[in-house]
């Protein structure tokens, strides 16, 4: 991936971002009640109209529709994410606080889904038609049909409530002053169930892709030729079957990164993780336009970045590009 290509990618994202930004504005305009209503609901009312009027003045909610849109558009155009009404803090601060948690959750969920999908998919392909294949594909099918929130609750019932092996939720042990390895292990313990929930509900897709691609590769000329040349099975499987089969899997990983963010809303709710997904839900219910816009922009940037990463990995995997060309990315 060259800088020029990167630039083009980002440029392509501009009209998309514009549409998303307009969409966010229209969406919150359609809602009954504004940010001040949500705030007043939270504090139990105000007794008269003046407080609401003052607050609307303060947040520019009393302006006309056109003026509000102009303010909104200007601040977005200058990349000023603005001030979150619900949190009374800069939007950027709020997002940066939540982003690492969601990244870690999504990252480990995707990683788990990919590893499970690739590993089990390859296994199923190599044992095609045998009991292993049936068991693995059936399990994937059933898990794929399972709602994430329910799987999460089941895992909680088994591992947190009954066995008491893992924490019920949250992201780290409260007020833990642990540092270094202990802190990492603590977070890892909290991540096991939510990441497993995401990974288990999403891996079926990768499994199917991997299994199918492996089988297709097995019938290809490459493998026949390699067999004829008497190459060791291990080498054939890894180099001529698994490697090309990874291509569609990697492509799908890029496409799925956006979906995962949606899935994380539910998982974050079930496991009480203060991440970006639950923040988005809150931004909608608080009618917090700047915050919601900020979150969606952050999500879009995230998806673009993931796709760039996918491009790089793709370059390294594609046999036609060959072993050396994968390094072009850095130039």
């Amino acid at each position: 991936m060259s800088w020029r290509r990167l630039g083009r990618r980002l440029l392509q994202a501009v009209p998309v971002l514009l549409l998303v930004a307009i969409g966010v504005f229209v969406l919150l305009e359609l809602a009954q009640g504004d940010a001040v209503d949500a705030y007043l609901a939270g504090i139990g009312g105000a007794g008269d109209l003046t407080l609401a009027a003052e607050l609307r003045q303060r947040y520019g909610l009393a302006d006309s529709l056109g003026a509000r849109f102009l303010t909104y558009a200007t601040s977005l155009a200058t990349l000023d994410l603005g001030w979150s009404i619900a949190f009374a803090r800069p939007v950027l601060d709020v997002i940066l606080e939540r982003l690492p948690k969601t990244l870690l959750l999504m990252g480990s969920g995707i990683l788990l889904a990919a590893l499970l999908g690739i590993g089990l998919g390859a296994l199923a392909a190599l044992r095609r038609g045998r009991p292993t294949d049936t068991v693995v594909t059936t399990a994937a099918l059933v898990l794929n049909a399972t709602p994430g929130f329910w799987l999460g609750l089941l895992l909680i019932i088994v591992f947190s409530v009954e066995l008491r092996w893992l924490p019920l939720g949250g992201f780290s042990t409260l007020d833990s002053r642990a540092t270094g390895l202990a802190a990492v292990l603590d977070t890892a313990r909290h991540l096991v169930l939510p990441a497993a929930t995401l990974g288990l509900t999403y891996f079926a897709l990768y499994l199917r892709l991997m299994r199918g691609a492996m089988l297709a590769a097995a019938e290809s000329g490459w493998v026949t030729a390699a067999k004829a040349r008497g190459l060791p099975t291990r080498r054939i499987v890894l180099r001529h079957m698994a490697r090309p089969a990874l291509l569609p899997v990697v492509t799908m990983l890029g496409l799925q990164s956006g979906t995962m963010l949606g899935g994380s809303v539910v998982v974050e709710t079930v496991f009480a993780i203060p991440g970006l997904g639950s923040l988005a839900f809150e931004a909608v219910s608080q009618r917090d336009l700047p915050l919601l816009a900020g979150i969606l922009l952050a999500g879009t940037v995230l998806v673009v970045l993931v796709n760039i990463l996918v491009d790089i990995v793709y370059g390294r995997l594609d046999p036609r590009v060959g072993d050396n060309l994968g390094r072009v990315a850095g130039d």
Binding site: G262, V284, L296, G299
Partner: peptide, 10 residues
């Protein structure tokens, strides 16, 4: 670009 479920939710 907008996660499907998030959009439905909103």
């Amino acid at each position: 670009t907008v996660p499907t479920f998030l959009l439905a939710l909103a």
